[in-house]
Design a protein around this nucleic acid. Structure first.
Lengths: 246, 246
DNA sequence: CAGAGGTCTCAGAGACCTCTCAGCAATCCG
DNA sequence: CGGATTGCTGAGAGGTCTCTGAGACCTCTG
């Protein structure tokens, strides 16, 4: 079976082969980081630096999804989108856009059910959106019936952005939600603060690992409050999320 | 079968041939020590002193993993990573970084599931991380089904950093954990204090072999406390870890 | 424009870890 | 048997890691 590099079973195409994703961004560092993160999901990834290369690569790779920067040196987002749909009408597209980009442009781009994230983004968010797109488009098969993320009595519904523990609803801020999602996708594994920063915070975040401690502290107050703790500190190594019994 | 120089069966590629590792560091002494330690694991190792040489060597050797200093004279870490992934998308990378390098944050480098250790490091830690990376990436086949490290009723889960004896959880500090890992990877074999010092303590540690005695003492209190002892002193030679009956 | 919620920095308190020192115990050897 | 050697462990200094509260800054909303 196809698996992620973390050992977890991967989201695959309906026939069980790896999902194919094309990353299009003219910043090579960003493209590299994105590529790495998506490969980590167990997907087959290729990168292109401009619209022309993107269209050529798409024709060859026939990707299930494209991660597309709307500001490319040679073509604008809508043109690339048109070109993509010409060769593959069903492809899912996740747009990357600057925060200050004119909002209604985006509105037009996402009309076809596609989605977008604004720069600077966190990798966890990009991966989550892409998974959402692919699932909704029926292009991906879930490894199991994984109705939501479940660790012990802690349950996360990603679509509804709802978290419950023992059936009790817990309200989380956006950052708290992302952090918990990352923890829940890696249960029983110690995650270092650097790993967490790289995944949950946006790539241009200059701050220290200290924020991680802070947000872990917030999560504990909401999730572990008065209950048997699920979030554990491993001094000198990082944090683990574990079901209560073991 | 491929074996380590210590006689233990080696972690191999899926086809049983030795894993191939490329070491990239511009400090020749450090590169030598690393190369030696990895060869000792039964792996095929090659060294390169800068980014250009590394990429050339990678193209030729096609390594399963690369140990990569992020501070190279000619290229930055992300650029080397990009070059590596161009020729080998699936290669695992373990980064070496200075502790005082723009604190804690290895911006994006660990995003793809890769890992890092900070200098000064212990060889045991480098080897352990590399093994972890390779296992998770599905690039390595374990010699046996070695679900975790097991010696008698003593069990270590390296991912969760958890140790149990007879099912009872034992809490260990980072150094205690490393020391025990080394012992458990070499059961029934007498390890000298010098060997332990070289493996478990970082290469720039100036202290005496006395710390080893101290930490063995700590471990005994936690692991052997009130039970049949597993850690034995071999006077004039070192220490052995053995299952109780043997 | 005021208020609310969210994010992050700062700084202090406290817990924990590592290692040195020193004295004692066990073992070895003449 | 007695001295020398080797190993064990308690006490404690110093440093590091972690947690938490207070507050500044920002954005969004009414």
């Amino acid at each position: 079976m196809n698996t992620t590099r973390s050992g977890r079973p991967a989201l695959t195409r309906p026939d069980g082969t790896p999902l194919r994703v094309l990353v299009v961004d003219d910043d090579p560092d960003l493209a590299e980081v994105l590529t790495g993160a998506l490969r980590y999901e167990g997907w087959e990834v290729r990168a292109a630096a401009d619209g022309t290369a993107a269209l050529a690569a798409a024709r060859e790779l026939r990707p299930d999804a494209v991660v597309l920067d709307v500001m490319l040196p040679d073509m604008d987002g809508l043109a690339v989108l048109r070109g993509l749909h010409e060769s593959q009408p069903d492809v899912c597209v996740l747009f990357l856009t600057a925060r200050d980009a004119v909002e209604d442009r985006i509105a037009g781009l996402t009309a076809g059910g596609d989605d977008y994230v604004t720069k600077p983004f966190s990798l966890e968010e990009v991966v989550a959106r892409l998974r959402g797109l692919l699932r909704r488009a029926g292009m991906a098969r879930r490894p199991e019936e994984e109705a939501g993320l479940v660790v012990g009595d802690l349950v996360m519904d990603e679509d509804a952005r709802e978290v419950t523990r023992s059936g009790e609803l817990i309200e989380l801020s956006p950052t708290e939600f992302e952090l918990l999602r990352f923890l829940m996708r890696n249960p029983r594994r110690v995650l270092s603060k650097a790993q967490i920063l790289d995944r949950v915070w946006s790539y241009d975040f200059g701050g220290r690992a200290h924020v991680v401690e802070l947000y872990i502290s917030y999560l504990r107050k909401k999730i572990d409050a008065g209950r048997a703790p699920m979030i554990h500190t491993v001094r000198g190594a990082g944090y683990v999320l574990k079901p209560v019994t073991g």
